[in-house]
Design a protein around this nucleic acid. Structure first.
Lengths: 245, 245
DNA sequence: AGAAAACAGATTGTCGACAATCTAACAAGA
DNA sequence: TCTTGTTAGATTGTCGACAATCTGTTTTCT
């Protein structure tokens, strides 16, 4: 039988491409938290009009990585230690739920995909490509959410992931050093192949704790910096701030 | 001490008002699932241009109650039985988590607010105002999520709530009869005031099960109707369907 | 000098018009 | 008759210009 699954064709609207560009810039930390997005300037740089740009920004606002103040501007969300902590604790709950749903649905294709993603993380680690390392690690994590066959859960996790990715990128940028190179996902992958669901769930929690340990140090440093009022170097939501002059 | 909390002033952009109007129309079931939103027509009805309307629609797309197909149109999301089931099961998990977080934070203000919202449900029930009954019941449910002091959880729950409210409204519309009038929230409120957190969590599950029981019947009826292909009466995402002629 | 009012510059919000694309109906050919 | 190509109508996507609003500065008055 001539089975051949064609992939859906790409979205060919400027809006979608603009949104993707902005999203990537934010999640990789190229656009810093609190920074204001000047519509005119960005539109000129991207060679598009403001209409699709504004629509794309509206999407990112709802995605939770931008925040908009009418007649004042649209800003990259500010990252507080509490935000990171909140996202992290909810992530634990979702992971546990995802494992529970995925468990009876595991099959050979699942294991293959698990290995594939695990391999991608190891490859990025070997390449010392920290950005890609973050991306692939989150994709490995995401497998259980994709496999759980619960669209609402998946959607929720993806929203959460956006922020986590942003937090990790910021952390990595703040350190300006490569991320730990050991393979901390080996046990995780093994447990997902095993027979003890409870063990997998428990490890997911510990595993995440391990991953996030350094992130928390970064979060706490943020907390202290902010409380000292030493944020004049960042372009916060102070209205009408001249950008480059 | 002159303590006085001023409320934030209203968003005075057309975009925000349009989004609110559309959201309400969708969540109350006035706009049916699958229905296409004609930009020109709506813009004329609302007496605004398409720009703010389109931006508002982009927001609702990200909120998950609209879905957009480039160059084809924007449609109210289709409701399947699985969607309802997925949302419901995730809701249980979130509720359990919210109770856990809220538990140590309960104080007099919490109890007062709990009573206030509970009273609002009873009032709506007495008034036989089914739409408001749904709204207030969800607000009562939402208290633990607001109180949990986890912004990501709250945001997640609010997204979920949008859909639940839509599902309930559809269900209620399908029945064309008043919703059960008994006070099924009494035990819930009492347990939230008590000392046994586990009991509250367990009841939250059972309580929701009770609330959703009829909704599931509706969901299953949807499933059967769709599988029979008897959906010609609804305006599905068939492109370029003439609207009123 | 200090406070209030008016102004100027810049940016966001909105509008109306045009271009790109889709769908359905119709025509042409095998 | 069925398939393929063309066309017409309608709708969405995009653009450039104008209006509304905000912030910082200057001016005016006491």
């Amino acid at each position: 039988m001539g089975k051949l699954d064609f992939p859906p064709i790409a979205d060919t609207t400027r809006r979608a491409e603009i949104a993707a560009l902005l999203r990537r810039a934010i999640l990789t930390g190229q656009l810093e938290p609190g920074q204001k997005l000047n519509e005119l300037r960005i539109a000129e740089q991207m060679q598009v009009s403001r209409a699709p740009l504004r629509e794309a920004m509206r999407e990112l606002v709802q995605e939770g990585i931008l925040t908009s103040i009418p007649y004042a501007g649209t800003f990259v969300i500010d990252v507080t230690a509490k935000d990171i902590d909140d996202a992290y604790s909810l992530n634990k709950v979702l992971d546990e739920f995802a494992i529970e749903l995925t468990w009876p649905l595991r099959d050979q294709r699942f294991f293959d995909e698990l290995d594939r993603r695990h391999e991608a993380v190891k490859q990025a680690t070997r390449d010392r490509d920290t950005t890609r390392q973050i991306e692939t690690a989150l994709q490995l994590h995401g497998l259980i959410h994709e496999w759980a066959d619960n669209s609402v859960l998946l959607e929720t996790w993806q929203r959460l992931t956006s922020r986590l990715q942003m937090y990790f990128a910021l952390h990595q940028r703040a350190r300006k050093e490569p991320v730990p190179a050991e393979d901390i996902h080996e046990t995780y992958a093994q447990l997902l192949k095993g027979a003890d669901m409870g063990a997998a769930q428990r490890h997911a929690r510990e595993h995440i704790d391990l991953d996030f340990e350094e992130l928390f140090a970064y979060a706490r440093s943020l907390e202290q910096r902010d409380s000292k009022g030493a944020r004049a170097d960042r372009a916060g939501p102070t209205r009408n701030r001249p950008d480059g002059s």
